[in-house]
Design a protein around this nucleic acid. Structure first.
Length: 233
RNA sequence: ACUUUGCGUC
């Protein structure tokens, strides 16, 4: 099963759900019983190609085959629905999952991000309050989701304040947090601040990655400051 | 190294 699962997951990640399904058939023929991981990979595979209908069908199907979905199964589906902009369905699935399992930090992180990206700001804030009350803000991911939401709302200064806030609360920003801010600063044409952020991350021991540099280069060019990109080398 | 959440280009 493990070998088949690895294969199915790999195909799903490449967007080859169709081929993953033929592997599933092969498993059945060889008398190899798919487990929850097999189904979770398939749900994710359908979500990745935007086929949320099929993703939901896999969930139904696993139940029919006596395989009870777990938190991950629902998290994967909720993430897919959010990415497909089916925010309401994602909220509905949350209700549904609570019947049989307990949503975890990933569930809430996913939904928070989906609500912000889906411009459902009011609901996002309600969820945000609940997450704060339940101590979910002890992790870098929810903070980074907020940083991104602030940047996209052109509240870069608030995002900078939040960065200080998380550090004070003992949550160390990671490369994604910094990249999010650098992107926001570049889009706001604040290249000096973007360079300052790059310096700050390295000073704090966070290594820039390829996305950091792509963001800087692309940002500086669109800000009509291509000459400054030399400073990156 | 069997499955899920946050970042850039496309």
């Amino acid at each position: 099963v493990v070998t088949y699962n690895a294969l199915i997951d790999g195909l799903c990640k490449m967007g080859e759900v169709q081929r993953a399904c033929s592997i599933l058939e092969e498993m059945f023929h060889k008398g190899c019983v798919p487990n929850i991981i097999t189904y979770n990979s398939l749900i994710d595979g359908y979500c990745k190609v935007g086929n949320t209908i099929a993703a939901r069908a896999v969930l139904q199907d696993m139940v029919a085959k006596g395989c009870q979905p777990d938190v991950l199964s629902y998290n994967i589906l909720i993430s897919g629905l959010c990415k497909a902009n089916e925010i309401q369905s994602a909220c509905d699935i949350l209700e549904e999952m609570m019947i049989c399992c307990t949503p975890d930090a990933v569930t809430y992180n996913t939904l928070l991000d989906g609500l912000f990206k889906g411009k459902r700001i009011k609901e996002a804030h309600i969820l945000l309050e609940k997450m704060i009350a339940h101590c979910y803000f002890s992790d870098v991911v929810p903070y980074t989701i907020l940083l991104g939401a602030l940047c996209k709302a052109d509240k870069i200064d608030d995002a900078q304040v939040l960065l200080q806030h998380m550090i004070r609360n003992g949550v160390e920003p990671d490369v994604v947090s910094y990249n999010t801010l650098i992107n926001g600063l570049c889009k706001a044409k604040r290249s000096d601040d973007a360079f300052a952020m790059l310096k700050m991350m390295t000073d704090r021991g966070c290594l820039p990655n390829v996305i950091t540099y792509n963001t800087m280069i692309y940002g500086l060019h669109t800000a009509q400051k291509p000459s400054e990109s030399h400073a990156l080398f």
